[in-house]
């Protein structure tokens, strides 16, 4: 890739999610004309989403189409609205405007097919539940109101714990688990949800190497089954290794698309400024990997 290409791309601004809609950037078409042709297979398509807390917008006119069956990382600096983005997609945070569709359906109808892994710190880990109880929570939607958790659900939950290598610790109280094990429990709960699209808020934050590998294995399994996972991710060095697609956010979409195309030095620079020299190494590694095939 020549420097010119890079410069052009760096000026080319945001790119839409898939390769098909590469043309004019900025605001190529009026908001009115938007009806992305492939939205029915796109697990998530976000259209002109604006989210504003008290005085200031946090996300502004975000457009994004997630490719099907892909592992997608959301990266961006602190305060770029990454967590807000996934929360607003799931109606956990009110949107000032914009539409969000899952396989062409609104959230209410698609909820059954979407799973969520919140940040690990968001819950009280001294809560009196065992690892198995937490995983069973993933099946509450399926079980329905009032009905208790049955044997079949428990068995399914144990299966999910096995997949993350935690079956032996199923009956431990959750405060007795290490940070990585807690994250694996959360992952098992997500598996128990048996969803087609997962939102995960920093699943790799503060976990040990073994857990990180376990998570990656599970993510790849999910992808192989044709499911999509959208992760808020902090560790830029591993983006290229773990993910297929990347969405770079900085209040609006800086760039989005396949990692090899989008995760460039210039884009990183745009998203993070000159703050991280590590990024340079990472992006060069990506570039090298991209040249090999």
């Amino acid at each position: 890739m020549s420097a010119d290409d890079a410069a052009r791309r760096s000026l080319a601004g945001p790119q839409s999610g898939s390769a098909s809609s590469h043309a004019p950037i900025g605001r190529p078409r009026s908001v009115l004309d938007a009806r992305p042709e492939h939205s029915a297979d796109s697990p998530l398509s976000v259209h002109a989403m604006t989210v504003a807390y008290h005085r200031k917008p946090v996300l502004w006119d975000v457009d994004y189409d997630a490719p099907p069956a892909a592992l997608i990382a959301i990266v961006g600096p602190n305060g770029a609205g990454k967590s807000t983005f996934i929360k607003a997609c799931m109606d956990l945070v009110p949107r000032a405007s914009g539409r969000v569709e899952f396989w062409g359906l609104p959230w209410r109808k698609a909820r059954q097919r979407v799973g969520y892994v919140p940040q690990r710190e968001s819950v009280d880990w001294d809560f009196p539940v065992s690892a198995l109880d937490v995983v069973c929570m993933g099946r509450y939607r399926r079980i329905g109101w009032f009905r208790p958790v049955g044997k079949a659900d428990r068995a399914a939950a144990i299966g999910c714990l096995e997949r993350v290598g935690m079956a032996e610790l199923a009956h431990r109280q959750i405060s007795q688990l290490s940070g990585g094990q807690q994250q694996r429990v959360f992952l098992a709960r997500a598996l128990a949800q048996d969803s087609d699209l997962y939102f995960m808020d920093e699943p790799f934050a503060g976990v040990d190497a073994a857990t990180e590998r376990a998570i990656v294995t599970v993510l790849r399994e999910l992808k192989a089954q044709g499911r999509s996972v959208i992760c808020v991710h902090h560790d830029l060095q591993t983006v290229a290794e773990y993910f297929d697609d990347v969405l770079m956010l900085n209040m609006r979409v800086v760039a989005a698309g396949p990692v090899a195309q989008v995760f460039t030095r210039e884009n990183l620079h745009k998203t993070y400024g000159g703050r991280l020299t590590l990024l340079v190494e990472a992006s060069e590694a990506v570039a090298r990997a991209g040249q090999q095939p």
Binding site: W60, R252, Y272
Partner: peptide, 24 residues
Amino acid sequence: NHRLWEQYLVTHAEIAPSHVDWSA
């Protein structure tokens, strides 16, 4: 205004967007 802010956020994003109220 929006176009310019967009471009600014994309090219000079070392400034955390929470400091910019670009619609105001």
